[in-house]
Amino acid sequence: MTDAILSTHGLVAGYEPDLPIVRGIDFSVSSGELVVLLGPNGAGKSTFVKAIAGLVPIHAGTMALNGRDITHVTPHRKVAEGLAFVPQTENVFATMTTLENLQIAVAHLPKAKRAVAIEALFTRFPDLAARPSRLAGALSGGQRQMLAVARALALDPPVIILDEPSAGLSPKIVSEVFEMLKAINASGVTVLLVEQNVKAALAIASRAVILAEGRIAHEGLPEELASDPLVGKIYLGTAHHHQGALA
């Protein structure tokens, strides 16, 4: 395992200062890992990653990216520093075209490099290349998810965080999304993934962390968690019949 590329220390976050949802999380992701965050509904998974991205107020603790403190850095500066975030919903600009969504994403690059960057994204996501003038709101669920991921990858970030990218997608598209995440991770990008789809997430993860009530309840290798019936029952809502499938 290499050095931590993203870490939090005693992170407390939530929309109201006196009602924290994230209650002191010490957490780190090493370069090249694909870490999946699991846990029951209301465990604070989404709030935790939104706090890392800068969308939820932080009331205590610190976070660092590549060793640099980014606790109170604004969201757009975090993007420039190499932290990309794909929210679960409303993750594309629906009233703008596919191309305009990507043009926004590459606006930080020098003008001469933008066309090349967009071309590279279109090569990586041919479904989007076929629909540059389509309004993002008119794309299918899977295409919208690809556009959201393409937008996040536009600046070649070392770290990408995705909040339930499989939510609301058909099983066929879900498997495509997980294949895409595997490929992104294989290309050297560190991935932090929040998922409800436990089986599929554990199948591609290099490490899994379970949150409960705003704190880390358990962490370990995917195969360890998958084979631990107590963990599955208490935290993941998985019944015994899942174990065979996960093994």
């Binding site: 969201p75 757009h76 409303e90 009233t95 703008m96």
Partner: peptide, 12 residues
């Protein structure tokens, strides 16, 4: 359209 998404898309 969406100020929060704009901020995480790198817009100041």
């Amino acid at each position: 359209e969406n100020p929060a998404l704009a901020s995480i898309a790198g817009i100041d």
